[in-house]
């Protein structure tokens, strides 16, 4: 379980995060929504321990994230970024094995356990036969799935996703979130696409100007009023098997 309590983060000119408080229950998938610049990425960086909150605290289980040494934090949390890029000549397996880095940095060679975990993670993202494929030959969707396998190989108790579907076509977007959902790992995911969030998330938290303006199940949170206030868009919302489906209208 992840508990974010009164977290603020400021830069000299602005308050990027303003007293954020919410909880990500164990084994749930929580969507972090909000327009560009609302503070989603900053909040993920604070949760990951890459930024230290100015006030408040982030607790993962019984530990305060800001007090965790980097290596310990990396054993408990894995981050999947928007876009991963390298010009090195790596195989998919090389990339997935990077997930073992926090577990045994001092050891010279990878153990059989490391390899078994990495191969199992590739299976888990439906890339079983891809171990020896070169990173440079993978499609965007395959790359993000390899990165997800890398994240699983870290054996994290919390998965952080920073808009991981941004560069993917709709098929790969659905597939990636389906794999995350299926994994049952506690997940906090910044997402742009509200329909995707509504489809996969147990709860959603909406950020606006660095504040939480709404939180709860997708159906109660995603209302026409909220979309108007936060995103400034006009939309119809219909009920599809208990999940909201949003249809946008062009600006008039």
């Amino acid at each position: 379980m992840l508990e974010i309590t009164d977290v603020s983060w400021t830069v000299p000119a602005a308050r990027i995060l303003d007293n954020i408080t919410f909880t990500v229950p164990a084994n749930s998938l929580v969507g972090l929504l909000g327009p560009n610049g609302s503070g989603k990425t900053t909040l993920l960086r604070v949760v990951a321990g890459l930024l230290r909150p100015r006030t408040g605290q982030v607790a993962l289980g019984d530990a305060t994230v800001a007090d965790l040494p980097r290596r310990v934090a990396a054993r408990r949390m894995a981050l999947l970024a928007q876009y991963a890029e390298t010009d090195l000549d790596l195989t998919a397996l090389d990339v997935v094995l990077l997930g073992r880095t926090p577990h045994q940095r001092s050891r010279w060679s990878d153990t059989d356990t490391d390899h078994a975990l990495a191969l199992a993670a590739l299976d888990r993202v439906d890339l079983g036969g891809f171990a020896h494929r070169k990173w440079q030959t993978l499609s965007g969707g395959e790359r993000q799935r390899v990165q997800l396998a890398r994240a699983f190989t870290q054996e994290p108790e919390l998965l952080l996703l920073d808009e991981p579907t941004n560069h993917l076509d709709i098929g790969h977007q659905l597939q990636l979130l389906h794999l995350v959902r299926r994994s049952q790992v506690t997940t906090l995911a910044a997402l742009h696409d509200l329909n995707l969030a509504a489809m996969f998330c147990d709860t959603v938290v909406v950020l606006h100007h660095g504040q939480v303006v709404a939180a709860g199940p997708p159906f109660t949170v995603l209302t026409t009023d909220l979309l108007e206030d936060v995103y400034g868009v006009d939309a119809d919302i219909t009920n599809h098997d208990g999940r909201p489906v949003i249809t946008y209208r062009p600006p008039s």
Binding site: T86, L98, T101
Partner: peptide, 23 residues
């Protein structure tokens, strides 16, 4: 040589290296 594994973690950039536990 003691940093070889940490150096590998830089493959996808420094932020990725940090989330893999590298200071």
């Amino acid at each position: 040589l003691r940093y070889a594994r940490s150096l590998n973690a830089f493959a996808f950039g420094e932020e990725a290296a940090a989330t893999l536990g590298v200071d």
